[in-house]
Structure formats: C-alpha cells, structure tokens
Design a protein around this nucleic acid. Sequence first.
RNA 1: GCCUCCAUAGCUCAGCUGGUAGAGCAACUGACUUGUAAUCAGUAGGUCGUUGGUUCGAUUCCGACUGGGGGCUCCA
Length: 646
Amino acid sequence: MEQINITLPDGSVRRYPKGSTGLDVAKSISEGLARNVLGAVVNGQVWDAHRPIEEDAALKLLTWNDPEGKAAFWHSSAHLLAEALEELYPGVKFGIGPNIENGFYYDIDLGDKTLGEADLARIEEKMAELAKCKSEFTRVPMAKADAVKYFEEKGDEYKLELLEGLEDGSITFYKQGNFTDLCRGPHIPNTGFIKAVKLLNVAGAYWRGDEKRKQLTRIYGISFPKAGELQEYLKMIEEAKKRDHRKLGKELELFTFSEKVGMGLPLWLPKGTMLRERLEQFMRRAQRKAGYEQVVTPHIGNKELYITSGHYEKYGADSFQPIRTPHEGEEFLLKPMNCPHHCEIYKAKPRSYKDLPLRLAEFGTVYRYEQSGELHGLTRVRGFTQDDAHIFCRPDQVKEEFKKVIDLVLYVFKALGFENYTAQVSLRDPNNKQKYIGGDELWDRAERDIIEAADERGLQTVQVQGEAAFYGPKLDFMVRDALGRSWQLGTIQVDYNLPERFKLEYVGADNQRHRPVMIHRAPFGSMERFVAVLIEHCAGNFPLWLSPDQVSILPISEKYADYANQVKEQLQEQEITASVDHRDEKIGRKIRDAEVQKVPFMLIVGEKEQEQGVVSIRRHGAGDQGSVSLDEFVDRFKGEIKDYLG
RNA sequence: GCCUCCAUAGCUCAGCUGGUAGAGCAACUGACUUGUAAUCAGUAGGUCGUUGGUUCGAUUCCGACUGGGGGCUCCA
C-alpha cells in the first residue's frame, strides 16, 4: 500500500498508509492521545481528526488545550444542539451556529414558539442523550445545486441565503446521527466527546445582525469534555458575579439609580463620590505635570454650536432633543461632547505657533441618548463625565503629543494595576474612504504617526481597519470586566474635522495662517465606566489612596469614645478620611463590619491605647499589625499614598 | 428600539396546584461595657412594581405599562 510521510510538530517524520487520518496517527502514538484528539492541523489548515490525509503533510493534533481544539469542540456542540432541537421541535429552521469565545450558540427560527428555562433543561437532556450515541461527524462535499435542493426541500430559507454567498465546489455538509447541516467544519470525531452541556440563556438576535431583518431565537451554551470542568466553569461564573460592579456598588454604597430620576442616570452616593473625586484629583495632578490647563464649560450649548461641529447632523435626530427658551425661541442641546466648547475657547484669542500645543482639560459631563436596552450599570449610561482634554497642536507635533498621551494612559493604568488591557489602533476602511472626512495625505500621516508613536512606546497593538472615527484614526484601550465583557476605557483620537469646521487657526513662523490639528483624549474614558471596571478589577478592595473610607476607628467600649474622637480629629486634620464606630457592639462585630465594608485601616482603641496614646492597627484582609503612635501611623499612611495624590 | 427572563419589607430571599403574606440581616428601643470577622431580648416596617382583565375572591392566572437582568442592534 502506498505510504505518505507525516511530519509531526517535533520535526520527526513517520510513515503511514495513504488515507490515514489524524486519529490514526494519534492511535499509533498512544490510545490516550487518540481519546483526546479533537481535530488536526494539516499543512496549516484545521481539519477533522478523522479526515483522510492523501499526501505527505505536516500534522499537528489538536486537543482541548488548543484554542482550535476548543473551537471545534464547541462548534460540534452547536451541531449537537441543532440535532436535539430538530428532534424536539420538528420544522425548526436554522440560522448560524458558531463557536464563540466561551461556548457556542445557534440561531433558530421556531415560528411563534418561545423557549423558557424548562425548555432549555429538556433540550440539554436530549443533547446528553444524543451525545451518548457517539454519532460520527461525517464530512460530505456537496455540489451547490444539490445543497440548494436539500434546503429547498427542507424549507430552510436561512441556509439557502447562506448558500447564495458560497461558491460551488467549496461547499460541504456535515452529518451526525439524523442531522445534516451546511458547514465548513471542522468537527470533533463524534458526539460522544461532549460529556457536559449547559444551555446558558436564550436571546433574540437579528438575522445577519441586521436590525431590519427578522429576529431569531439564539440559544447560548457551553460544553466540556469532562463533567467536572463544567462545574468549575459555573463556579467561576458565580465568583465573577460577586465582583459585578452593580452588586458591589450597592453593597459599598457607591452609587444608585432611581426610576424617578431616569434610567441610565447614575446617582453618586457620598462614598462613590469620594472615590470619584480621588480619581479626579489623581488625574488633575498627572495632567498638571504634563502641561494641561483646566477649563470649565457649561452643560448645554446652542444648537448652532453642534451644527457647526457636525454632531447635530450626524446624531441630532437620534439624541436628546433641543431645549427651547420660552421667549426667544433659542434652542440648546445638552452637550454630548466637550470638544465644540473647547474649540470656542481656542478661538477666544489669536494663537501663535509658539502657543502650541495648547492642552485644555475638563472633567466634562455629557449626555447622550442611548437605547433603553443598551443601558448597563455604570458602564453604559445616559449622563457621564469624561476626563476629557483636547490638544491643539501643529501637524508636526502630532506624533510627539500622541506619545505623551500614551505615557499618561500607561501611567494611569499602571498606578491602578490594570495589566490586562488591549491597545487597538483603529484605522479607516481603505475600501470605503468616502465615509471619512479629510484627505488621504492627512490620514496617511496621522495613521503613521499613531502606529509609530505606539511602537516607540513599546505598546503591543492590534490594528483594526474600518474602526476609525469619521474624523480621524484613534488608539483605544480596552479592558475586560468581571464577566469577560470588553469595554473601551482610554481613547486617543486625531481629528482634522473640527479644526476645519470651526476654522481654527494659528499664525506660523512664516506669518501665515495655518490650521492646527486636534487630539481628543480621555485616559479613563468616563468616570462612570472607569469606576465600574475598577470596582470589578479590585473586587471593591480599593487601594488606600482611592478608598472612600480610609480609616475606621473602633473603640473597645463606649468608655473610649472620647479618645476615639480625638484620634479622628487628628486624622482629619491630616486630611485622612476617618470615622468612629460608636455603636454599642462588641469589638469583633465592629471589625467584621469594617472588613465587610472593605475599609483599608481599622484602628482599635481601648484602655491600653488610651493610656499609652497609641492606636492598634488592623489592616483590611491582613489582620492585626500591632500598636504604634498616631504620628507614626500618619507617617506610614502618607508614605503609602504620596505617589498618587498631591 | 427588538427578543427573552425577572419584579414580595431598606437588603438577601421563602410563600405547593388562587382564600389579602413570612425569615435572616439592616433600622428603632432596652439590657450587656465588651480586645481582633456577627451579644441577647423586644418593637416597628409591605394597598406583594403600576394598571386593566378572568374569578365569589388575585401576591398567585392572562394582558398592557414601568423598571431590572441576559442578548441583538447601536455607541460622537
């Protein structure tokens, strides 16, 4: 029989009969490996482990530990879900059913039928039952005409629409048990690998992501090759939920919402406000050092301002509507952006090239209409405060300024311990240039400046085309929340549009008028979203310099209340936020409550402390730290925060 | 905005198949005067999100609305 050479990842070459599969190779290595093989990479392409290899090839076997292995596993789980659905709901039509980052989903059309929790449980059971059949996933190449015929007979218009976009000759079906699906593959060898399935939720999803088209039912699920792994996963989700900023925000009394005030309009409670002010203080200090000047502008602006900026045309209809004055009939908009106001500040007097860069910063509160279904805790709201600034500079200064902003963003992230962020360079879509304002030359230069600036700062970036704002390219910093959802925090954007629209000018060394470039930047993004992500990041255990409550003074009994009050006053003089727990409770109880409230320092004062004029320090999460004089405590405290607040 | 699920005391939740509601914590009062993660006892607190309907009777069943969760679409 004809033999082929298979090269394994370690470089070794083995000979196998022509038509051997990845699975055959695995078996020849070890039975254990064969039991765990989910797919194979053949000459760089991901294949089914059980697809015959007809010629010499480089082969890598995929298991659960490989991302491609997981992908195939979850994709196959989606097919298993579809098989179960077809048995339980004959006539169901299928959209798409891909694997996703954590699990898989399938979009289906059930006609008028809706699915509830009980249905999901039933479907899960059916999937488990079908998995036990160990049905093999069989790959069947199909002529387009036959494929069309198949789905016409089945009456599945969604699959027919998908087929329209496919070329004859490249179409394959996959079958397992009684279920056949249009699919590129690859798949795991058989359904028996899927030992644990959990259907997580149902959701509506527009067909092809188009709001105007029919909404299908999407079933999300996750599956594992071992039952224990599913349990672990579910436990992890539970743990993550404990960090949810909406839960912690309530427990730690940071913020709240009120129906009366309105959805998406956060109310900052005293403790949340304290946290937010400390963040602002930190940012103000960093910006002062970086040459920014602070400004303040009103919450509303004349409609004309936004007509000039172009925001009215682009967002006016889908935004909060203008406020009209009763007599003059003037129209004002809640400001959705601070930049138009800052442009007017720029224009307040003639600017020389020597004045640039001009860096105007403002903690500016803006209001944007967001669709009701989009609102989410503090991460997506209708009124929020940006740590905004606009840098007006000469074109030759863009790159340097950009680098300085990157430094600022990285400094902020480092100070707050954000290590797992991604930096995304958002470029314009080269095939759709008319969507953007500004000439090729400006864009090319700006995009090059951003990429080089990021490179020179050693930033790992991903470049995404078509993600730029219409007025310029940008660099966005994204961070994940407790549940793995990705949010954009910091952003740096180059803008050629507004200087043009507002006719901003400076006089150059040549005594000619020139147009400056604007850089919009917000290291936090918005205070609201940043606080949300920060809460989840540190699970509510804020670093000392940010913590709303810094010190809780706990008298052993009411006999030491006076001494406790003295301590509090002395700390307050040092601008340390302290409170005394005067409740008639035992010390154990006071400690517990302070621990639960995540107060960084507890100072316990009783007879011994009063006599010796000291305090007993207990650190949150770290227990008893011994007694020291109040002066020494203040020194230690200040030493710990001095790098952040000034 | 769309799909779907949910809505009981300040908070976390119980209340089987319809007969106008309960627990723990918090709050308040009193006793205890306390040494490193919950002292004990008592009191008060809810037209069961709002609003229609079915019913002799609705917290419970159905509809609408409001708000929230999950997702889709959107995000200057």
